[in-house]
Design a protein around this nucleic acid. Structure first.
Lengths: 313, 313
DNA sequence: TATAAACATGAATTCTCTTCATAATTATTA
DNA sequence: TAATAATTATGAAGAGAATTCATGTTTATA
């Protein structure tokens, strides 16, 4: 491969000049340099590029072929350089998000809607229920942001807090637990528990509430969608544990009741995990900012992540 | 403009390698060279091209953008280089022909038919009746070959003889000149002469026969097509002067008669004019060879150009 | 934790491109 | 047509950039 960008630029300049000397001036090189350059090219391909000694400089077919190549290629390169500059400036980029927590889908759609308006040139994508480990996929560069309630200190990964949440038991208003101030692990031993179809290790209710006490529900059923879980609970097919932001609408309308898990309640924090190298990108920061304000009560943010510590940053 | 072909090749190699070292090997440079190269690129665009320290090497979006650029551009360059080599090898080229002599159209179409089979990758084009000077257009590179009976010694232009021809007077079989052994200038003073619509200086009949004797035909009419001229003569609307190769068919079938102009006849030679720089190209030589054999009588070439001198070569 | 693999870095070298000065060629003008 | 101007070509020297070499640093794997 002999052709270089330089030759393309030279041929293009020559094609709209009356002489080599003119073209050289356009290119900000000496006439000699251009002459050497063209000669090297002609020697390599063993064909002249222009007719010598003609008043208006005229390209040979070989020269014209090079010009057409230049006219194809140079604009593509200009465009690519422009995009690279925009990538480095954080105007253009990719935000592939994975959510480990199913219930996050509820607020994330709203957040993404307004985010897309702010960042029309960021390629946003969302993938749920990944089979592989989301955090290592993040580290590998397969995805760019993970919404997780389970910060695992990982090299090169930073967990930015979004907002705290409380996992609450959801029951139908006529359920015998409905009136209680809080629920104890043993209360669930004779209940059907409805969960998202994920490993128990990913479910706070098992990891922090039931398993430590050795309690096993009467039955465990799965549902993929939050709306479906709520409907199943409302129709008395079982109880569920969901984060408070999901329950706000259902409970104030009296369709469902929720109560804390244990006297203290089961509290957690939602994080956005990103690569450390991406934390300074404004389109990442803005997403985190928008996400931290996503869940509101009466128009006020439930809480902002700024009150809580970052992890691994 | 910072991007160079080299970077495109490097990025492409990196994208199908498991490590920089592998890619460097593919590229036949050292790992160090590639590392320097990538670093320079990343410094310029202020954005990384791949994630460091990950087991399977992974490109950043910026890196992927470069790979897609490379995949667009490199094949185009390979193709262009291939075509340039073919141009210099004389396999690929352009043969734009201009005919100064209208009657040449008759045999040229046949010649071009077989020529195209021999040279499928030569871009053949034919232009008749140019307003400008064909020979200087040839010198300028606007066209590549001129069929002419009028060799003008011109710098850089070579006239290769094709075949001799005789300009003969064509009359209908019942014309009063039909039986004569030859025609004299004065015989035409009371005739209507039908010619191609070109300046008299381009017509042998005026330049070499009538004008030197101060004879003017009774009338001059024009017709663009040879077939039309023959038809006009056959229907007794006038007489014409045409080269012998046009008349062969019509005269043997007895539809028309032809007779020499003057006792010696009016003889000329047809030439193919080409740029000296093109004379060695085999697709040019082959065209000239085919053209010189174009006009035959009883399957034998009327005469070949090899018996006659080249001019200006 | 040790060892291997992968990547980064600085200095020296090699190579290529450009410039400078000037020659040779071609076009224009008196 | 000679003379002048314009254009292109060329050789040598200089500048600049890419590569290599040798080695350091970091990251992964046994």
């Amino acid at each position: 491969m002999f052709i270089e960008i330089r030759y393309l630029r030279s041929l293009q300049a020559i094609s709209n000049s009356r002489s080599l000397a003119d073209a050289a001036q356009q290119l900000h090189i000496t006439q000699s340099a251009l002459s050497h350059q063209i000669k090297a090219f002609e020697n390599y391909f063993e064909t002249p590029l222009f007719f010598r000694g003609r008043k208006p400089l005229k390209l040979t077919p070989a020269g014209e072929r090079m010009v057409s190549l230049a006219e194809n290629i140079l604009p593509q390169i200009v465009q690519a350089e422009y995009e690279l500059k925009r990538i480095s400036g954080g105007e253009l980029g990719r935000l592939h998000i994975t959510i480990e927590c199913h219930a996050c889908f509820e607020w994330l759609m709203g957040t993404l809607g307004s985010y897309r308006k702010n960042w029309p040139d960021i390629e946003v994508d969302l993938r749920m229920g990944m089979s592989f480990d989301a955090i290592s996929a993040l580290a590998q560069g397969d995805i760019d942001l993970v919404i997780s309630s389970d910060p695992i200190t990982t090299d090169g990964i930073c967990f930015e807090p979004l907002f705290p949440y409380e996992g609450r038991l959801v029951v139908d208003p006529e359920h015998n637990l409905a009136g209680k101030p809080f629920v104890q692990p043993s209360d669930l031993a004779d209940q059907t528990l409805i969960t998202y179809p994920v490993p128990r290790s990913k479910l706070d209710i098992f990891q922090y509430f039931l398993t430590p006490e050795g309690v096993e529900p009467k039955a465990v059923r799965h549902a993929e969608l939050t709306a479906m879980i709520l409907q199943l609970v409302a129709s008395k097919r079982g109880v569920a544990v969901l984060p408070d932001w999901v329950l706000y609408e259902s409970t104030i309308s009296g369709q469902l009741c929720s109560l804390p898990l244990g006297e203290q309640g089961l509290h957690g924090m939602l994080y956005a995990a990103v690569r450390k190298s991406d934390t300074q990108l404004s389109f990442i920061q803005d997403f985190i900012n928008l996400a931290s304000l996503a869940v509101t009560t009466n128009g006020m943010p439930l809480s902002t992540g700024t009150q809580c510590p970052k992890i691994g940053c």
